[in-house]
Design a protein around this nucleic acid. Structure first.
Lengths: 248, 248
DNA sequence: CGTATTGTTGAGCGTAGTCAAAGTTAGTGG
DNA sequence: CCACTAACTTTGACTACGCTCAACAATACG
């Protein structure tokens, strides 16, 4: 991956949604950064650490999670390539959660100070960054609802819907088929269930002809019914272009 | 409440944490706004609505929530006076959740465009706003953990700890006592439990001498044990001066 | 003072958890 | 390329935490 293309997907995504001018784009492209290849399960951020760098995911998948005293893990969100994975920790001094790769991944670490300086110098870019973090926030809210008020089948179906839509939007799905980057244990940790129960729910979804799933490869066979079953409404993903707001 | 003091608590809070100069503060104070008194249970934002105003809570309490198809409600967060209650919806065009008052409240509605213009014109203020929303985000993450991976007693204890610390930080608690602005049904909706079970857990906490609670008035009797029981660590609140209820 | 809201109690049930073991797939090194 | 191992998935039997339903008590409030 050549240096000058590192930020290309990011610039493309942002220019589609926000009015970034050439200077904005150039400023993004000239951000200092160091590119790295991370093995699966590598920690990108550890809870309690001071964070000096922000991590942009160039390829692969990542997730956030937290541990409770009893030792259980709760996965907080999933991330696909093209996303900044810890703008969150960037603004708040110390990380309050862990970020880890789900797969082998390439990332670019960008010094926090450079990002904040860019946000201050180029308000349109700052707003794009803020906007991205607000979408993350919306997804957290939906996850609170998912683990708080939905039964196990609905919960799993909802999560699969979210993954299907987000991978689709990122161009990582064809014909309702995609690589599910999570083990059943990770699906369980994302939904607040046990891996045993998650396994049984997945079998039920297969039995009912909603999905086919084998070794990390998932195909949605009946999107309408899965969406219905999962009580899924994509609004919270805010995939549409945001309304244009011009400074007064 | 006189016009020029509407933003005073906000300016004070932000200047304590960020380096805002006089021009920044003046710009905040001169934000256009309309002040209103809202009765208890008033909607501030409704899911699906386009939002044109941001709501700053001047007094009273508010909460965010979402409904699932089955009709259950999940409370997503609580808000105390001095906080912007929907900077979230401000950046994203349409609201993805409801915001409602928990008590009679006074609020100031600020036009969204003015806020975004301010954020762009005065980067330090923009960063303060972004920072506030990132703390909300951190709290959402902790709530995902709370409802996803903690048992009922731990969950309720954790929520009570959060409320105690946040009300303490806002100067709304004295001597480990404060007004608990939630009914048991609302506590249940915040923790993903039923009101019946919440009632039983509260009784257990009273029986064990951790809290005393009667008609909306809660006193923490044993902060150390409650904190322990609730698996509570205030880091996620990112209070600069974590003013925890100290054991005398 | 009457009514609505909120809190409390009991009995029975069901969803999801626990524990343990076997089966399957993927990854690694010989 | 195969053998071996670790990781992941599946199954069964049993358990328990928290839910449901329903009635009643206490409190707030107009």
């Amino acid at each position: 991956m050549s240096e000058e293309h590192v930020f290309a997907p990011l610039v493309e995504r942002w220019t589609q949604r926000f009015q970034l001018d050439d200077a904005d784009c150039a400023a993004i492209r000239s951000l200092p950064h160091s590119e790295r290849l991370l093995e699966r399960d590598s920690y990108v951020v550890r809870e309690g650490e001071a964070s000096n760098n922000c991590c942009l995911l160039l390829s692969g998948f990542a997730y956030r999670h937290k541990l409770v005293r009893a030792g259980a893990r709760q996965i907080l969100s999933l991330h696909v390539s093209g996303e900044f994975v810890d703008l969150q920790n960037c603004l708040l001094g110390t990380a309050d959660h862990n970020v880890q790769t789900l797969s082998r991944a390439t990332v670019a670490f960008v010094p926090q100070a450079a990002l904040l300086a860019l946000a201050a110098a180029r308000p349109a870019v700052g707003r794009a960054m803020w906007h991205d973090t607000m979408i993350d926030s919306s997804i957290f809210r939906e996850w609170v609802v998912n683990v708080g008020r939905r039964d196990s089948v609905t919960r799993i179906a909802h999560l699969l819907c979210e993954i299907a839509v987000r991978l689709g939007a990122a161009g990582l799905a064809q014909d309702q088929s995609f690589i599910l980057p999570l083990t059943q244990e990770q699906l369980a940790d994302a939904t607040g269930l046990t891996s045993v129960h998650t396994n049984r729910v997945l079998q039920a979804l297969r039995r009912d002809g909603l999905i086919s799933l084998s070794t990390r490869s998932l195909k949605v066979l009946d999107w309408h019914r899965l969406r219905e079953l999962g009580d899924f409404n994509a609004r919270y993903l805010h995939l549409e272009t945001p309304r244009e707001l011009s400074p007064a």
